[in-house]
């Protein structure tokens, strides 16, 4: 009985490793392609002492994504966190989430006919709550700002 459990666990790890790596590479390729398309829209953050730019219309735009790590990377990260230092597998996860959220915001702003996005803010939150019983990390990344026309 124990052998079967171990086999399932190993199978899930392998599934996570293979499918997770494929999904990650695909996502990075997709991000690169879509980021080129929205390059023309610039995003500016500025302080309270600068005058507001001229615009006809200002609208709140939000882009968000919930992204999860795979089974393999979740266990790899729990081993790595015992040793301390960089946890690269989560760095790429958050990077994907953040880039995706910003992309979605920009795509929405472009759809609205925006010229610029001002005061972009990023927020990251963990959806797992206090106790994480295993099976992966879920993070929500939101990007929000003001699109002006």
């Amino acid at each position: 009985m124990e052998n079967i459990d171990l086999l399932i666990f190993a199978g899930l790890l392998l599934l996570g490793l293979v499918a997770g790596t494929i999904a990650e590479n695909k996502h990075f390729g997709d991000l690169k392609r879509r980021e080129k398309k929205v390059k023309s829209l610039n995003v500016i953050n500025f302080g309270a002492h600068e005058p507001l730019p001229e615009a006809h219309e200002a609208t709140l735009v939000v882009g968000s994504v919930v992204i999860a790590s795979d089974f393999f990377r979740f266990y790899l990260a729990s081993i790595l966190s015992l040793l301390g230092g960089n946890i690269g597998v989560y760095e790429t996860l958050i990077e994907r989430g953040r880039r995706e959220a910003i992309l979605r915001l920009k795509e929405k702003a472009i759809a609205l006919g925006a010229r610029q996005v001002l005061n972009l803010r990023l927020e990251t939150s963990n959806l797992n709550g206090e106790q994480n019983k295993g099976g992966g990390v879920q993070v929500e990344v939101i990007a929000y700002g003001t699109a002006i026309r």
């Binding site: 499918a19 997770g20 939000v62 968000s64 992204i67 999860a68 089974f71 879920q138």
Partner: peptide
């Protein structure tokens, strides 16, 4: 839970949180 095995976007939750927002 299934999606968590392979990783990637959980679009169900993305929609849920967007609705909530």
């Amino acid at each position: 839970g299934f999606k968590n095995l392979v990783g990637g976007e959980l679009s169900g939750y993305t929609d849920l949180l967007q609705e909530a927002r």
